[in-house]
């Protein structure tokens, strides 16, 4: 019976058999691989991972592999938590709700946090997007981490109307309230490595996403001044 249940069509039942037989080691690994394959409902994937985690803690004298599996499961659950925390407006904008949502990739979640659906995106949303970068598979050739990073910061820049800010009265004071600089400040306070998670200023200014803003001299000036200010802090 055990072997019959291990075939791919019946795998979704085999953990029930394993639990009954007291083989929590086997149940743990089956549940984990079911979760890895599942794409349709994020809530179901979460429950599969949760069950797998509980099964892992139920194993008598767990071998080392079980501990590393728990770590992997926690990472997956972490990613799901980011998806669950998407603002409600954004989820509604997709015409769904969290119970019926499919499993999204880290890149998709980033795009939703920084994208146009998230009208009220603030520095917290951009920080989440930066946090999500750790889930991007660096070996995947189709995904360029640098591009995503530049995209996140461009979206942050575009949240504000820079022609208003660069009015001559007090440009630096006005700058502080932009989403871009608030995110920067928060990232710095949180101890993120800004050399890693902030693209070079020239790369940012070369991004086509910024459109006509790229050519505004006052905007370029403010951005470069901000970068210089950062460098001074790091030199200290």
């Amino acid at each position: 019976l055990g072997r019959f249940l291990q075939t791919s069509e019946n795998q979704h039942l085999s953990w029930l058999h394993d639990v009954n037989a007291g083989d929590f080691f086997q149940a743990q690994s089956t549940l984990q691989s079911l979760a890895a394959e599942h794409r349709t409902f994020v809530a179901k994937k979460k429950t599969l991972l949760s069950l797998s985690k509980l099964a892992a803690y139920a194993v008598e004298d767990p071998p080392e592999s079980v501990h590393s599996n728990i770590e992997a499961i926690n990472r997956e659950l972490d990613l799901i938590l980011h998806q669950e925390q998407l603002p409600q407006d954004v989820v509604e904008g997709l015409g769904t709700d969290i119970d019926n949502m499919r499993v999204l990739s880290a890149k998709e979640i980033i795009d939703l946090y920084v994208g146009e659906f998230n009208v009220d995106a603030n520095e917290f949303d951009f920080m989440k997007a930066l946090d999500l970068l750790q889930f991007i598979n660096k070996e995947d050739e189709d995904v360029d981490c640098e591009d995503i990073l530049t995209h996140i910061w461009c979206c942050a820049i575009l949240k504000d109307d820079w022609s208003e800010i660069s009015r001559p009265d007090d440009p630096f004071e006005n700058c502080k309230d932009t989403v871009f600089f608030k995110t920067l400040e928060m990232a710095y306070m949180d101890g993120l490595d800004l050399t890693q998670c902030l693209p070079a200023v020239d790369r940012l200014l070369a991004a086509e996403e910024l459109g006509s803003l790229r050519d505004q001299v006052s905007f370029q000036f403010l951005l470069r001044a901000g970068y210089e200010h950062l460098e001074q802090i790091f030199d200290k």
């Binding site: 979460k46 949760s50 069950l51 509980l54 972490d78």
Partner: peptide
């Protein structure tokens, strides 16, 4: 779905369960 609550890192309920 109780499994979700017990396994969550926020509450860490699974830690108060004996094996």
């Amino acid at each position: 779905q109780l499994a979700d609550v017990i396994a969550s890192e926020q509450y860490k309920l699974y830690q108060v369960f004996q094996r």
